[in-house]
């Protein structure tokens, strides 16, 4: 464990807490893409298949449980909660995310570390996570205005993978045989996808104005 990775995990945790705060405090999920939340739930469920078979550390197990539970809780809340689900932007959240699932799965079958069930699902979860934010970014683009908590949620979600890239660079120089090209390339793509969001987020922060994404 190094500081970059710990910072990344904490940033990821903060993004989840901000999302939960937004939904429970405002009793609204406007501006949140249900499809992105479903993709993230799938990412965690397929990445942490080894949750009960390989014990790495208490921290690792607890964080995995938190990520799985929180992503499922948000999906259930957005689908079932009678007040929250009324504020869901159903007609804006129309990204065909099934293509992202299919593309990630096909890529995982072609590019993986080992052609085994667990490795293929691990690679699938890595590729899917890189693309999972797309429905959310498209939804924000369409809805134009980004409320503070949603903007902070997406910002921290993007920042966490940037910390992981620093973690991979650090581990590359401090550990032998550190082969994780799948995660590195995918993590880079994931962070680049946030580039324009980060730009507009920084502009709104600099002008202390409400964040506006060009329609």
């Amino acid at each position: 464990m190094n500081i970059f990775r710990f910072a990344g995990d904490m940033t990821h945790l903060i993004s989840i807490l901000v999302l939960l705060l937004k939904i429970y405090a405002t009793k609204s999920c406007s501006g949140i893409s249900l499809k992105t939340q479903e993709l993230y739930a799938l990412v965690f469920l397929t990445r942490y298949l080894d949750l009960f078979t390989d014990f790495i550390s208490v921290y690792n197990t607890i964080m995995k449980l938190v990520f799985i539970a929180s992503s499922l809780a948000v999906v259930c809340c957005m689908r079932m909660h009678r007040v929250v689900r009324r504020s869901y932007d159903k007609d804006l959240d129309t990204f065909r995310h099934y293509f992202l699932i299919l593309a990630s799965f096909v890529l995982a079958l072609l590019v993986n570390e080992k052609f085994t069930f667990q490795e293929i699902f691990w690679a699938f979860s890595i590729y899917l996570e890189a693309l999972a934010i797309l429905p959310q970014l498209v939804l924000l683009q369409r809805s134009g205005n980004v409320d503070n908590l949603t903007g902070q949620y997406v910002f921290f979600l993007g920042a966490y993978r940037a910390f992981y890239i620093l973690n991979w660079i650090y581990r590359y120089f401090t550990e032998q045989h550190f082969s994780r090209w799948i995660a590195c390339v995918s993590g880079l793509v994931q962070t680049v996808l946030y580039a324009d969001f980060f730009y507009y987020y920084f502009i709104s922060w600099k002008n202390n104005a409400k964040m506006q994404l060009p329609a």
């Binding site: 690792n60 964080m63 550990e175």
Partner: peptide
């Protein structure tokens, strides 16, 4: 087999 190092990450 030892868990390949990437798997100790979240």
């Amino acid at each position: 087999p030892p868990i390949s190092s990437i798997k100790d990450e979240l």
